[in-house]
Every structure is written in structure tokens, then in C-alpha cells.
């Protein structure tokens, strides 16, 4: 298959089709669903680890998905500089896999929060910055465990390397320093709790997700 965006599907993923739709139908970028048992990603130019409740969130969110064969391929893909984005449960999976630093614990409000969410854009990369995306974006959230945690040294590293992509304007979950999304130091692995794939259609709360997903694919 030609160059495409690979969307990994785990048992319990439920944002895989939304992510596929956002790329294939809205961005007109070829996309392909990859079952978690698959050992290869084919000719993927980028990988999405989608939201949902992989393996029922058993043990810890993302703890079991990280051992799926497809995730071994994703790790290799990322190690070779390939672009990977984890959304919501995908963010949790990337943290559990060690592809991103830190961890996500239960919301401090103890509620599952499903709402529109304004995010402050941080200047992080040539594509994830205020000039490209604007000062703020409205991207929906839907999670019970989005409370980002990292130790002091880890937080200092994130700040120093400009690895924070977005902060919540009004913190919905107790996340440290209002962190909503981060990237790895190398700048090819991204993770965020809000759902850009749910902000791409005229009937969505906003269409700010389009620019965000384009920023992810931009060379």
C-alpha cells in the first residue's frame, strides 16, 4: 500500500474510526486501520494511537496495549524518527510504553469529563506553535484519567525542551501545570488527552482539529 496514516486498533479502541475519518475524508490523506496483532505498519508515513478503552483499561489505562505486537512496530517506527501521535487512551499507551515521559492518573474531580475544552497553544515546534495554530484552540475532551503527572526533574526537562504542546485554560482534571499535551524530546512523538479528530466537521464544536492534525503531518 502507498504512503498512509496507520491508525492502530486495539480491543476496546473506540476513536479509531473517527481518526480514520478525519484523515481519509477530511484531510484527504490515505489512512489505514492496523489491527493490534499486526507485526508491521506497512508503508506508513505516520501513526495514530487512538482513544478508547484498550483492553477495558484493565490493570492501568494503556498497560496491556503496550505489549501488543503492533506497539512493538510503533516503537521501532518511532525510534527511526517516524511520527506518532497518541490521543486520549493513545496518550496513556505511549506513556506506558515509555515513548513519552510521565503518566496519567485519575481526574482529581473523580468525574469522567466529556466537554468542549479551550487549550492554550504553546510554542513547541516549527508546526505546533501559536503562529500556525493560533493562541488558543477549542478541542473536546472525554476522559476519566487525564491527570498528567511527572516528577520535578521530568517537568523541568519538558519546560526546558519546549515539549509542552497545549495547556488547559481551565484545568478539568488536576493535570500538573495544566498540561494537556506533550511531545518527546526528539519531536516526533506526540500525546494529548483532547480529541482533535472530534473537531474536524462543521457539526463538531469546532474545526480546530484540522490545523492540528495537519501540523502533525507537516514535514
Amino acid at each position: 500500500m502507498d504512503m498512509h496514516v496507520a491508525v492502530i486498533q486495539f480491543p476496546g479502541s473506540n476513536c479509531d474510526q473517527d481518526a480514520y475519518h478525519a484523515f481519509a475524508s477530511v484531510l484527504k490523506t490515505p489512512a489505514k486501520l492496523v489491527w493490534h496483532k499486526d507485526k508491521t505498519l506497512g508503508d506508513a508515513r505516520a501513526v495514530i494511537v487512538p482513544g478508547g478503552f484498550s483492553f477495558g483499561d484493565y490493570l492501568r489505562c494503556g498497560a496491556i496495549a503496550r505489549f501488543s505486537p503492533a506497539m512493538q512496530a510503533v516503537k521501532e517506527f518511532a525510534a527511526n524518527g517516524g511520527k506518532v501521535m497518541g490521543i486520549c487512551n493513545g496518550f496513556q499507551i505511549l506513556c506506558e510504553s515509555g515513548l513519552l515521559p510521565g503518566a496519567l492518573i485519575r481526574n482529581n474531580c473523580l468525574e469522567f469529563r466529556c466537554q468542549e475544552q479551550w487549550l492554550k497553544v504553546e510554542d513547541s515546534t516549527a508546526h505546533f506553535n501559536k503562529e500556525t495554530l493560533g493562541q488558543r484552540v477549542n478541542i473536546p475532551i472525554a476522559h476519566g484519567e487525564g491527570n498528567y503527572r511527572i516528577d520535578e526533574a521530568g517537568l523541568a526537562e519538558l519546560e526546558k525542551n519546549k515539549q509542552i504542546l497545549f495547556r488547559y485554560e481551565e484545568n478539568p482534571n488536576g493535570s500538573l501545570c495544566d498540561i494537556a499535551g506533550i511531545r518527546n524530546k526528539a519531536g516526533n512523538v506526540f500525546g494529548m488527552m483532547p480529541h482533535p479528530e472530534r473537531a474536524v466537521e462543521p457539526f463538531h464544536p469546532s474545526q480546530h482539529g484540522v490545523a492540528l492534525l495537519k501540523a502533525f503531518l507537516a514535514e
Partner: peptide, 14 residues
């Protein structure tokens, strides 16, 4: 269990 310095929202509710 959570490390001592990590918040446990569930424990607090209990």
C-alpha cells in the same frame, strides 16, 4: 500502590 508523593483522588474520596 501509588508512590507517597502521588495524589490518589480515589483514596481521598474514600
Amino acid at each position: 500502590n501509588y508512590k507517597k508523593n502521588v495524589l490518589d483522588p480515589q483514596g481521598e474520596a474514600v
